[in-house]
């Protein structure tokens, strides 16, 4: 069933868009960072492997952005002409890699891929059929990504120097990975996407928007995602903390396992606040589009089904 055939109330639409933006932005920005390793990875083989992963993530971003396009946006609204403040990826995706820090790429991939795997499971039975339809393809590829990260984690951890690099990466990245489970601050509908009969028009400006927690409740109540972020976060901790510890790596999670707001960075991405590195990254990847004075994004591949 095409997304456009489903009648959505403004609250439903806001919840749906918020979940899709979160999924798409995470994947797009992470892929953008992964491509930095192309021609810079430690070996030709690891170069090829990470390039594969980057392209998979870009492909996933494309699948999710495509569902937003079915709601009336186009690629320029969603990326090339979008206000950078309206991106909702977790800051885990946007942080630059310190030079030569391959351990950062591995830890980041591990933390992200486990979280994404759990989130995808929770989208398998989505009440929005177009989401459920796309989960399977993504899951097959993510399974490989997690395996790739786990293999490297194990290999680097058996070496003293490798272990030090991993620990530094965990220290730097873990708080930003917690951001993956922070409810997403909604973005107003673009006026151009509001349907002719005025449906949804109440959310064209920021003041009228419900808060992130309310939108998160709607996402779960409507069944767009079947588990809450709080539940997914607990599952994630149950999996990544013991694994990291088994490799001799410490996490900032206290002994009682209680995650408090203080552990999450103020600028976590989901709340619309980003690091300064995001502004630079956004300026770089939109540079050509602006330099050429483009008004559309060239498509050369078939659109996803």
């Amino acid at each position: 069933m095409a997304a456009t055939e489903i009648e959505l109330t403004p609250d439903q639409r806001l919840a749906l868009e918020t979940e899709l933006r979160t999924l798409a932005d995470d994947e797009f920005v992470l892929a953008e960072r992964y491509t930095e390793w192309q021609v810079h990875a430690p070996t030709l083989e690891s170069d090829l492997a990470l390039a594969n992963i980057a392209q998979d993530e870009l492909g996933h971003a494309r699948l999710w952005y495509d569902l937003l396009e079915e709601l009336g946006y186009d690629e320029t609204d969603l990326l090339w002409e979008r206000d950078p403040d309206t991106f909702r990826h977790a800051t885990l995706s946007e942080l630059p890699f310190p030079e030569g820090e391959w351990a950062d790429a591995i830890v980041r991939s591990y933390l992200f891929d486990v979280a994404e795997g759990l989130r995808l499971e929770s989208l398998e039975e989505s009440a929005y059929p177009a989401i459920a339809d796309r989960v399977g393809k993504i899951q097959r590829e993510e399974g490989y990504h997690t395996e790739h990260a786990e293999n490297w984690l194990e290999r680097l951890a058996t070496d003293d120097e490798g272990g030090d690099h991993l620990q530094a990466a965990v220290d730097r990245l873990f708080p930003h990975a917690l951001a993956l489970f922070v409810p997403t601050e909604p973005v107003p509908f673009g006026a151009e996407t509001v349907s002719g009969d005025g449906a949804g028009s109440q959310y064209t400006d920021t003041d009228a928007l419900p808060d992130a927690a309310t939108v998160e409740e709607t996402i779960v109540a409507e069944g767009y995602r079947t588990d809450s972020l709080a539940t997914l976060g607990e599952r994630w901790l149950d999996r990544v903390v013991p694994t990291l510890e088994s490799h001799g790596l410490r996490t900032p999670v206290p002994a009682d396992g209680e995650i408090t707001d203080e552990l999450v960075p103020d600028a976590c991405g989901r709340n619309g606040r980003h690091t300064d590195d995001w502004d630079t990254l956004y300026a770089d990847f939109t540079h050509t589009y602006r330099e050429l004075g483009r008004e559309d994004a060239t498509m050369i591949m078939d659109r996803p089904e």
Binding site: Q38, N52, A54, L79
Partner: peptide, 20 residues
Amino acid sequence: RQAPSIDRKLAFSAKVQDEI
């Protein structure tokens, strides 16, 4: 990074990967 559309970015990443 500088490719001006998602499809171009994907194709260009794949090209660089092919060269490696």
